[in-house]
């Protein structure tokens, strides 16, 4: 985005004016701070086994604040490490899918004609391919739970929709007179894409990205359910919640802590995405 793009201060202001989005931003800030700094406050290590404290419910004071799991690992520290990993994974995966999607969609939309037709047909075909199966093949092939494979899998799934959105936006932009004006000025195609088209579709794309991140987190949890996500002893929100769900009746705290963090995170991200979309809507004031 070019330096100091115009809608930015105003869009952020409009975003901040919305109570829902403001709360979401604040809670998100707290969650990120917790993920980064939170484990310092606890004496426990995420993978340390405490044989004297197996499957203990939460206790205050010097104990395990969110309880322990069946191996005696501290759930407070593990939840925050899981949050950290889930955040990082989903952010990078969203970033990857955005980059591919923006490049693919804007080139297809700007080139138009036959190139556009072929590029979008590729997207259509990939859409009809069960992406789950690709991810499973990838993850089960290389090494189960390899973070790289997870990233490629998650990012590779997300870019299709981004490419469609970006292409539709580019097509709409391409017909606008300021793009014709740029051509009349003598700019080359590449310059027009980078200087005029991409900055103008960043708003929509950002709002969409805020909605992709929660999908990535959910998808990772889904992979954890299949045993293909982040592997023990590493913690992700997905495998913690899945582990907790299996102990729902006997040890509800194992589910409650991680699930609460997961729900709070997803609620805030969704709310933020909606808020961003509304704030960028030119008809809103």
């Amino acid at each position: 985005m070019p330096e100091g793009s115009p809608d930015r201060p105003r869009a952020w202001q409009r975003l901040w004016r919305r109570a829902g989005a403001r709360t979401a931003l604040l809670v998100l800030g707290i969650l990120v701070a917790l993920a980064v700094l939170g484990p310092w406050f606890s004496p426990w290590q995420p993978q340390a086994l405490d044989w004297s404290q197996l499957a203990q419910p939460p206790q205050l004071g010097h104990g395990h604040w969110l309880g322990t799991d069946r191996l005696g690992r501290d759930l407070y520290v593990r939840t925050l490490y899981g949050l950290r990993l889930s955040l990082a994974l989903s952010l990078i995966a969203s970033g990857v899918s955005l980059l591919i999607g923006i490049a693919w969609g804007s080139i297809a939309g700007f080139a138009g004609g036959r190139i556009d037709g072929w590029m979008m047909r590729v997207v259509d075909v990939l859409y009809a391919l069960p992406y789950l199966f690709i991810v499973i093949i990838l993850t089960s092939l290389v090494a189960r739970g390899s973070l790289w494979v997870l990233l490629v899998g998650l990012g590779g799934v997300g870019w299709l929709t981004t490419a469609r959105i970006v292409r539709a936006q580019t097509l709409a932009l391409r017909g606008r007179e300021f793009i014709v004006a740029a051509r009349a000025t003598g700019l080359a195609g590449g310059q027009i894409i980078t200087r005029h088209i991409v900055p103008n579709l960043m708003g929509t794309v950002l709002a969409y990205a805020a909605l992709t991140i929660p999908q990535m987190i959910l998808f990772e949890s889904f992979l954890s359910f299949l045993g293909l996500g982040v592997q023990e002893p590493h913690a992700s929100l997905g495998n913690l919640v899945y582990g907790g769900a299996q102990e729902m009746e006997s040890a509800p705290w194992m589910l409650l802590g991680p699930a609460a963090v997961l729900v709070a995170l997803l609620l805030c991200l969704n709310r933020l995405g909606d808020g961003l979309r509304d704030a960028l809507d030119p008809r809103e004031y």
């Binding site: 919640v241 769900a245 589910l255 609620l267």
Partner: peptide, 13 residues
């Protein structure tokens, strides 16, 4: 929002 945030392996059980 809550229905969208909870994985079905939590909701189901």
């Amino acid at each position: 929002a809550c229905a969208l945030a909870l994985p079905s392996f939590v909701v189901g059980p």
